[in-house]
Measured scan of single mutants.
Amino acid sequence: GSLMYASIFGNVSAIIQRLYSGTARYHTQMLRVREFIRFHQIPNPLRQRLEEYFQHAWSYTNGIDMNAVLKGFPECLQADICLHLNRSLLQHCKPFRGATKGCLRALAMKFKTTHAPPGDTLVHAGDLLTALYFISRGSIEILRGDVVVAILGKNDIFGEPLNLYARPGKSNGDVRALTYCDLHKIHRDDLLEVLDMYPEFSDHFWSSLEITFNLRDTNMIPGSPGSTELEGGFSRQRKRKLSFRRRTDKDTEQPGEVSALGPGRAGAGPSSRGRPGGPWGESPSSGPSSPESSEDEGPGRSSSPLRLVPFSSPRPPGEPPGGEPLMEDCEKSSDTCNPLSGAFSGVSNIFSFWGDSRGRQYQELPRCPAPTPSLLNIPLSSPGRRPRGDVESRLDALQRQLNRLETRLSADMATVLQLLQRQMTLVPPAYSAVTTPGPGPTSTSPLLPVSPLPTLTLDSLSQVSQFMACEELPPGAPELPQEGPTRRLSLPGQLGALTSQPLHRHGSDPGS
């Protein structure tokens, strides 16, 4: 009898404990919600809404976190579960008819179910419309201010047509639940991603989709105040780019002037030289400038040598048109050559190039014969006009050509200096018209024969001689050997007369 009593008592207590286990969990969670309300000092109306929603959600799901349970299964099984949970929507909604099984599984994985109690606001006026909503159960109302403009029910759709707008718009009203509602919502990016994977279904979906109420604000059109608020930074940046392009296009129409201050000032006329910023005076940081632009901040801005204009002085008759350009485009679109090309026009420029290279940067340069637009006047290309890779490749080509020119210049200078040193070592320090008596009659020769300089066969020296023939050397430049009979510069000019005159010897006659 005691054994029977113990078994009955144990079973009854276990049954009672299981009955009250759900209630215990409910009270535990309710205590957490109330502690949250007390800690954050939530006001009474919002506090009442929180408690009511918790009670309804507990009775609806029995305190089970559906998302946590669903995430515990593998992905393939999750797709089947989501397809079952959203079967009513996918079967009865017209846009989803005719979709393949794979497309429906992908869509079912992207849908999220939302449960809303009465009085809950789903979308506020001015919120971004980031999702498309399908009503599965219940009814909602749409308000503009305090005026109800629409009441939607089961199988209705609200949001915005995503295929017509590249960016999400703003809501033009509040969406509030009238009863307990079940909503299926899919985010904008998720829907577009699935439709991109199934393009054959995309056309059918957009053609058959009928949005019951379009929440997009109709005033959000390009150029409206609301649109400016939504895309303020983007609009200002776009206007700045367009104004920069218009100014650079105007600059290219004036090829007669070359400016070292950047493309923003290349198009300024002579009357605007004294102004601080020219056409860019209202925004000094709008356009890029070269490193020399920092010198323009000092006094005497109108007389600054940074602004270059072609000189009108005539060229000498024998002067060549100019050196070879550094870039391939210089032959086609440049009416002034790079300062480095002028360094190779003569030997005198070679000796004085490194010492006063900055001073020569603004000297007169030889002109190319074609009066085409200036290379320095070409505006900086924006990322939309020329690819970045093209600019980098041009810079690399320019750097390689500069290296080759520097190597060639160093070799030419070394060769010229070597020839000058050899000339100085071969010439005796001094010569006299009267020579010392020699031991015999073989001493009648006034000077030792001097062998002429070897013929220069280097390509670089031939180019130097060509430049010497075309360029007029300055007075202080050293002379180079030329073709024809060679003669030492330090010898007297009348050596031929010395050989014809008898030598005057000093000596005593033994017979006297």
Rank of each mutant, 00 (worst) to 15 (best):
F234E: 12
S313W: 08
N214W: 01
D146L: 03
T499N: 05
S381V: 09
F351E: 04
L162R: 03
S393H: 12
R216Q: 03
M220S: 09
T130W: 13
D127K: 03
G262H: 12
R245K: 13
D356I: 07
A497Y: 11
V427C: 06
L398V: 08
G507Y: 13
A430M: 10
K170T: 10
A411M: 09
D249L: 12
P317I: 15
R358T: 12
G262E: 13
W206S: 04
N163K: 08
S465G: 11
Q399Y: 01
Y180N: 08
L491R: 12
T435Y: 12
N214A: 04
S374T: 01
S208Y: 07
S333R: 09
F158E: 02
W206D: 01
T228K: 11
L162P: 12
A131W: 05
L419E: 05
S334R: 12
M413V: 14
T130P: 04
F344H: 11
S285L: 11
S445C: 12
R245S: 10
V148F: 01
R400K: 11
S202F: 05
S224Y: 06
G355V: 09
E472C: 13
A260G: 11
F205K: 01
E229Q: 12
G493I: 09
S224F: 10
S224W: 09
R385Q: 10
L419P: 05
M197V: 09
S451D: 09
P441Q: 12
P222D: 10
G281N: 12
I350F: 07
T336E: 11
L195G: 03
L195A: 03
I221K: 07
K241L: 11
I151T: 11
S235G: 10
S410P: 04
C368L: 08
S285K: 11
S334I: 07
S171I: 01
A469V: 13
D146P: 13
V148D: 01
D156R: 03
L152Q: 01
P439L: 09
L164W: 11
P288I: 01
I186A: 02
L409K: 04
S312M: 13
A411R: 11
G269H: 05
W206Y: 12
M468N: 07
G269K: 07
Q466P: 12
R385E: 04
E297C: 03
P199R: 05
S285Q: 13
L191H: 01
N349S: 06
A469F: 04
F213C: 08
D127G: 03
L453W: 08
L453R: 10
R176K: 06
L473H: 11
S374H: 04
F311A: 04
P441L: 09
R137C: 10
R246H: 08
S286P: 11
S290V: 11
E210Q: 11
K185H: 13
R404D: 03
I135K: 01
Y133W: 14
L419S: 06
E324W: 06
P452H: 10
E328Q: 11
A370G: 10
G440K: 06
F134Y: 07
E471P: 10
D459K: 15
T218V: 14
L398D: 01
Q418T: 11
H187K: 09
P279Y: 01
T248M: 13
G223A: 09
K185T: 10
G281M: 12
T442Q: 12
G233Y: 11
